[in-house]
Amino acid sequence: MSKIAFLVAAEGIERVELADPWQAVKDAGHEPVVLSPDSGEVQTFDHLTAADKWPVDHPVADVAVGDFAALVLPGGVANPDALRRDEQAVAFVKDFVASGKPVAAICHAPWTLIEADAVRGRTLTSWPSLQTDLRNAGATWVDQQVAVDGNLITSRNPDDLPAFSETLLKALA
């Protein structure tokens, strides 16, 4: 059983973008783990409405890339915007991408990849409003369910979650 890191901020996480890949990873026999800049709980949302709270398993400063087989970056607008302002979270993402292990980001989550300088020369997809940000950071943006470029797996939105989770699980096989 491999540990899979789910890195999120304290709030603003799109619930389904955390819960669905989490369940897929768990159902496949892996151990999903919530990482966040701080300990305690994180607040998920159904768009703009507060939803479930999730316990943080470990602050990101207390773990190493070697502890995990893959990294999942759920979206939500506020979540990746907060993560990209946290130096330890950004350093963890940068090191994870450099490790060659799978990094799966959905919706607005590629903002954190941009901050980690991990998109230059890569092809990604995202929520449509990020396409200019991705292009300005040196990426090629495509409008498709899932884009895979090396160890980066990206998807556009919650409608893409089945394909996103399936692609993540294939990368872990």
Rank of each mutant, 00 (worst) to 15 (best):
K26G: 02
M1S: 15
K3M: 10
W54I: 12
S39Y: 02
V25R: 04
V72E: 01
H108G: 08
A10P: 10
W54M: 12
V16N: 08
A173M: 10
V25K: 05
D38M: 13
A82R: 08
S2Y: 06
M1I: 12
L130A: 08
G150S: 03
R85N: 14
G29V: 12
T49L: 13
A78M: 13
G76I: 02
V25A: 09
P59Q: 14
S165W: 08
A171H: 11
S99N: 10
D143G: 06
V42C: 08
A24T: 10
A163M: 12
P37K: 13
D27V: 07
D27L: 12
I153W: 01
F6M: 07
A109L: 07
A163R: 10
P162Y: 10
E31F: 01
G75Y: 02
P80K: 01
V77D: 04
V65P: 07
Q144I: 07
Q43A: 09
K101C: 04
A171C: 03
L134E: 01
L134G: 00
L130V: 06
Q131N: 12
V77Y: 08
I13R: 02
I4G: 01
I13L: 09
D62R: 14
G66P: 02
D86T: 12
P158M: 13
F96V: 04
K53W: 03
A105L: 04
L161T: 10
A69S: 13
F164A: 03
W22Q: 03
G100H: 14
A10Q: 14
A61T: 15
P74N: 07
D52G: 05
A51Q: 09
P59D: 12
D27F: 10
V56F: 03
G12S: 11
W141L: 02
P21K: 07
D46M: 11
L124Q: 01
P74K: 05
L113C: 07
A173N: 14
D81T: 13
V60D: 09
I4Q: 00
V72A: 07
S165P: 08
A109E: 05
H47S: 10
P162T: 06
V72K: 02
V56M: 05
A78L: 11
G150Q: 07
A61N: 12
D160F: 11
L168N: 06
S39D: 15
L73H: 06
G150D: 07
E17P: 04
T123Y: 02
F92K: 08
E11N: 15
D46V: 11
L73T: 06
D67A: 09
A173E: 13
R135F: 00
K53F: 02
E31V: 06
A24Y: 06
L169V: 11
E17S: 06
A116Q: 07
D27N: 14
G40R: 13
D159K: 14
S126L: 01
V119N: 00
I4K: 00
G75C: 05
A137W: 00
I4V: 15
A173G: 15
N136E: 11
P128S: 12
T49M: 11
D46W: 09
I4M: 03
I13F: 04
P55D: 05
R135I: 03
T132H: 07
E17M: 08
V60G: 09
V148N: 00
